[in-house]
Design a protein around this nucleic acid. Structure first.
Length: 636
RNA sequence: GCCAGCGUAGCUCAAUCGGCAGAGCAGCUGAUUUGUAAUCAGCAGGUUAUCGGUUCAAGUCCGAUCGCUGGCUCCA
């Protein structure tokens, strides 16, 4: 006998030795239709599985989180079957479910143009209509290898050869059989709402020295509505694309003649950046940081000492020779901050040092990875380095993490996820230091009460780190902040401070960036706000609109008064109708539109219209300014 | 860097089989005197990314370079 758990939490007993299909036969028909597969003693199984005795079985319904993965994985198989029908000589690689869909990698006789997606979709629809059951087969490893070799499936063969001896499972649907762990949908007809989305190159096993395969991406849902909603979300993301908004709102650009990945900040983007920087500097001063400034170049010897020429050279631009000395453009600020530390001897009494810099660095990124503001070759990090004693270290970590959250929250981000990356196999530094630092990071994370994951072995070779991801208005995650220990550079530069015991000690060194880079962070902000910046960040906070040229004098007076009050105001006195100018200001996402006609000029008032609420009627100037100042102070 | 797709006016896009490069918006000039999301007219705007090739003829076909897009690898 086995125990069957129903979704409502109740349980009943059932015979063992029957299949899942038979098991659910007696259930409520509406529930029966919902069941995709089973969980037997916590493991996902096909509905056709013969159930063992004494098992605990629960039903996996369409709405359960595991079900969508089963659906998508089966969709990948159906796509592979379709591709095999169209290209019998295709070689199969892997085809998993992923976050928003699925993919399958193939080695194909010719490159697929995008038009082929529709052809493959048609074939998939045929397979779905033919309604093949997914049939699981168990084959001994040797036989599986022989079978795959005979079929010329070299990628699959490689995968099986690395599995442990024993039974290997295959799944068959119609004429198509594929190596697979499963489970799958009961039959192909269960796939109703799907779409193939793109074709891309992908290295076999993600290794750039191996074959380039063709990857077909698609997505699938249980209902048409969910599929449509997904594409709506993609459209929404396209509307928010910072590259599009950057052009439309005149925030930034790039120029072929200047080079890829090099950003031109236009005046309006520059205003936003200035506000961000001013806020950042103020907060750093309040939080015990000193601001430093360092050059863009340094002699190659510096990078030799720091070790960057060893482990970072492929990301650095080639050097330039000046009077027989080689200079390199900086990809990081740390060696310069270290040089400040080393400019004189340091005492334990002085520590900690918290030195921050908006340091512009240049990194050679391979051309294929560049993307708008989010991945560039020249960028300004909101960098800082903390040098402290071991006894200060835990508190410094606490402080820096709390500070980080405070800054990010000011920009309207509310959801965070933290990742603690621990010591990788290949690394430098004393074991005690790694242990103490990792512990301090973990404790600091736990104090925040925020969700986190441990990325075992995911740290840099020189130290453990915390990466912090923010969630934007569309629920997308972005990594900005990072807090990293460095056990490498203090050693290489022989950093010391004189302790109370008159001995030399090595300080802890912590790298940290809160916003990450100003370019990237600005890009994320543009997408998060869809270009409609809150008042404190808006490049143009208010535009003054005289109704008639006769009102220009009063409009100019209001404009001057706003500017004098610290508001980023503009005056639009163009010879256009008021509706035209309002439309333009609205499309430029200006928060306040201030209409002044003869009535306002006489009374010394202003007709206020906001981007969000529309016409608010006639206000006194003081009321308007009070409202704006409050909104700016609240960063709302 | 690799795979695939792409590059026409500031922007969005036309241009049939290789046969005179075109429109809307933006810009400029003029008229209009305007009250909460587009007033009208005229003008100007191009070495079709760049360089080379095939052809009587190239935006269109071929090659190289630069750049962009989506992925892969890598990452703030």
């Amino acid at each position: 006998m086995l125990k069957l758990w129903l979704p409502d939490g109740s349980s009943r007993t059932a015979e063992s030795g029957i299949s899942g299909k038979e098991l659910i036969a007696g259930l409520d028909p509406s529930l029966k239709k919902e069941v995709i597969c089973l969980k037997v003693d916590g493991e996902l199984k096909d509905l056709s599985t013969l159930l063992p005795a004494d098992a605990e079985v629960s039903l996996v319904r369409r709405s359960d989180p595991e079900a969508i993965e089963v659906l998508r994985h089966s969709a990948a198989h159906i796509m592979a079957q379709a591709v095999k029908r169209l290209f019998p000589e295709a070689k199969l690689a892997i085809g998993p479910a992923i976050e928003n869909g699925f993919y399958y990698d193939f080695d194909l006789p010719r490159p697929l143009p995008p038009e082929d997606l529709a052809v493959i979709e048609e074939e998939m629809k045929r397979i779905i209509k033919e309604d093949y059951p997914f049939i699981r087969q168990l084959v001994p490893k040797e036989e599986a290898l022989a079978r795959l070799r005979a079929a010329g499936e070299k990628f699959k063969e490689e995968l099986v050869s690395e599995l442990e001896d024993g039974e290997i499972s295959f799944y068959q649907q119609g004429e198509f059989t594929d190596l697979c762990r499963g489970p799958h949908l009961p039959s192909t007809r269960y796939l109703q709402a799907f779409k193939l989305t793109s074709i891309a190159g992908a290295y076999w096993r993600g290794d750039s020295s191996r074959e380039m395969l063709q990857r077909i991406y698609g997505t699938a849902f249980f209902s048409r509505e969910e599929l449509d909603a997904y594409f709506k979300l993609l459209e929404e993301a396209a509307r928010r694309d910072h590259r599009k908004l950057g052009r439309e709102l005149d925030l930034f650009s790039t120029d072929d003649q200047i080079g890829a990945g090099l950003i031109l900040w236009h005046p309006k983007g520059g205003r936003v950046r200035q506000v961000i920087e001013d806020f950042w500097r103020d907060e750093h001063r309040k939080n015990g940081y000193e601001l430093v400034f360092t050059p863009h170049l340094g002699r190659s010897q510096l990078w030799e000492t720091s070790g960057h020429l060893g482990f970072y050279r492929e990301n650095m631009y080639s050097g330039m020779e000046v009077e027989g000395q080689e200079y390199l453009i900086k990809p990081m600020n740390c060696p310069f901050h270290i040089a400040i530390y080393k400019s004189r001897s340091r005492s334990y009494r002085e520590l900690p040092f918290r030195w921050a810099e908006l340091g512009t660095v240049y990194r050679y990124e391979r051309s294929g990875v560049l993307h708008g503001l989010l991945r560039v070759r020249g960028f300004t990090q909101d960098d800082a380095h903390i040098f402290c004693r071991p006894d200060q270290m835990p508190e410094e970590i606490d402080r820096v993490l709390a500070f980080c959250l405070k800054i990010l929250r000011a920009f309207g981000f509310k959801e965070f996820k933290l990742y603690l990356a621990t010591r990788p196999e290949k690394s430098v530094g004393a074991e005690e230091r790694w242990a103490a630092a990792t512990e301090a990071l973990r404790t600091a994370i736990e104090k925040t009460g925020l969700p986190y994951e441990v990325d075992e072995g995911g740290g840099a070779f020189y130290g453990p780190k915390i990466d912090l991801k923010i969630k934007d208005a569309l629920g997308r995650e972005w990594q900005c902040s990072t807090i990293q220990f460095d056990f490498n550079e203090p050693e290489r530069f022989e950093l010391t401070y004189k302790g109370a015991d008159s001995q030399d000690h090595q300080p802890y060194m912590i790298h940290r960036a809160l916003l990450g880079s100003l370019e990237r962070f600005f890009g994320i902000l543009v997408e998060n706000y869809e270009g409609a910046f809150p008042l404190w960040l808006a490049p143009v906070q208010a535009v003054v609109l005289p109704v008639l040229p006769a009102n220009l004098e009063y409009a100019g007076e209001l404009y001057d008064w706003l500017r004098a009050s610290g508001i980023r105001a503009e005056l639009d006195s163009r010879n256009e109708k008021i509706g035209y100018r309002i439309r333009e200001a609205q499309m430029q996402k200006v928060p306040y539109m201030l209409v002044v006609g003869s009535k306002e000029a006489e009374s010394g008032q202003v007709a206020v219209r906001t981007r969000k609420e529309g016409d608010l009627g006639v206000w006194s100037r003081e009321e308007l300014l009070a409202r704006m100042e409050k909104e700016i102070a609240e960063k709302s």
